[in-house]
Write a protein that binds this DNA or RNA. Structure first.
Lengths: 240, 240
DNA sequence: CGGAAGATTGAGAGTTCTCAATGCCTGTGG
DNA sequence: CCACAGGCATTGAGAACTCTCAATCTTCCG
């Protein structure tokens, strides 16, 4: 039974048994981390490639004034940037949100694996998707109202989670406090709270005690102006 | 005399003469484009790698409501995503801003070139920098005030331009209307106008008739909370 | 039961947008 | 060389959105 990382890459590319085995082997011995632990900090020299096997993490940058902006969420199956080791230092930090199991793939192993075409292809696609996601976030921050922005984020997380088997029907575990959501969408936790209430009232989504429930997918998708094209999912929509 | 694309890659990696020659050759026959021409549209099947040799372009997405959000600026020397051809379709569009000369590198040639370690390394670094830039934009949109946001963008563009020889002292040609700036920073052109006035009044920058003048680099950097680390420039700051 | 973290509420202050009118500059045709 | 059209840039004023700053609830745990 493949782990979520392998499972995710398989969605992009048909991997050979040897390739899957190599990926499995490379991530077979994850390390446990508690919540709110920095895995790597801005300014650090990049190390091995990190792979989230269990638990959630986030990428963030802090501003001179002390503010924090989250620039990405990492859920089980997600890997941190291929090739970062080409850079002299990290331009952002990565921190766990929950308890987590993260595997670490040393550069040499990574290099060896990238010689296998399927793996290389899958990793490249995965990176392009991450980039598309960054662009989608910029669009949200720049041109969507706060309700739409939150709706968009929730839908994105739901879709990604569903793809790695983390959603059950229209429900999933979402371990993000309103303060964390606020740092991701560029708002105040107070305002996130009110917008979440609005969404709840509208009957589109519900997010309480760490469980997200997409009550009305169609309405939510319309409201958020959500077009999943940037996730480059090969399969058909989860909802259809 | 190397073109700006080669010049830019050389900033990241020491290329061998053969590598430089290959890059030169691959971009030796650019095509001219007029202003406001889509080079590729969201939904299109990705084609060859594009390289801007002269003129500016932008990446953008349009929303259901009709709004437009710019997610990146391309200036001479910049290339569009390596590997995009792995995706079934573009998740955003690219359009020229000014008259432009853009070269086109077919997949097979690109592949052949990537076999040369220096070129591969430079292209990967370049992609990581683009990604870092996307993250920096997210931070700006989420956590910076509108003046800071504009100041940050102007500084970024100035630094990047300076790196490819497009700045003269503290001055550069910036062919962006206030409406374009607005679509990039997620504001209204009316508000961009007012914030630009504020910057002008403060004596930090000036942007008039297409010329940007960084009057007080230190003050501007402080105001914008600008940390160039995400550009991963190997050389020392232009200002120091 | 006591504490701590996270979720909610209220009210007033600030920021940014909307809408519409006006001003400025440039290239073109007469 | 001048008038005119079109594209930008600028202004004003009121409306809409978000934030700030507390204060109050709830929930989760030891």
């Amino acid at each position: 039974m493949a782990n979520r990382f392998v499972e995710k890459l398989c969605r992009f590319v048909q991997l050979s048994p040897e390739e899957m085995a190599a990926l499995e082997e490379a991530t077979a011995r994850p390390r446990p981390f508690g919540p709110h632990r920095d895995l790597i900090r801005e300014g650090d020299r990049p190390g091995p490639v990190l792979v989230m096997l269990e638990g959630w993490a986030l990428r963030y940058k802090v501003l001179p004034g002390g503010g924090r902006q989250i620039v990405a969420f990492l859920m089980p199956g997600d890997a941190c940037d291929l090739h970062v080791n080409l850079l002299a230092e990290m331009d952002h930090s990565i921190q766990t949100i929950t308890n987590a199991q993260v595997a670490t793939i040393p550069g040499e192993i990574m290099e060896k694996m990238m010689a296998q075409p399927g793996i290389a292809r899958a990793m490249y696609i995965s990176q392009l998707v991450d980039e598309g996601t960054l662009r989608a976030w910029i669009v949200s921050m720049g041109r969507r109202s706060s309700v739409e922005r939150i709706a968009h984020l929730l839908l994105e997380l739901y879709r990604r989670a569903a793809d790695v088997g983390l959603a059950a029907g229209d429900t999933m575990a979402l371990p993000l406090s309103q303060a964390v959501l606020a740092d991701a969408v560029g708002m105040t936790s107070v305002h996130v709270n009110r917008m979440l209430q609005e969404l709840r009232r509208s009957g589109a989504v519900t997010l309480q005690r760490g469980v997200l429930n997409i009550c009305n997918p169609a309405a939510l998708t319309r409201l958020a102006g959500f077009d999943e094209n940037y996730l480059h999912r090969s399969r058909r929509s989860v909802f259809s």
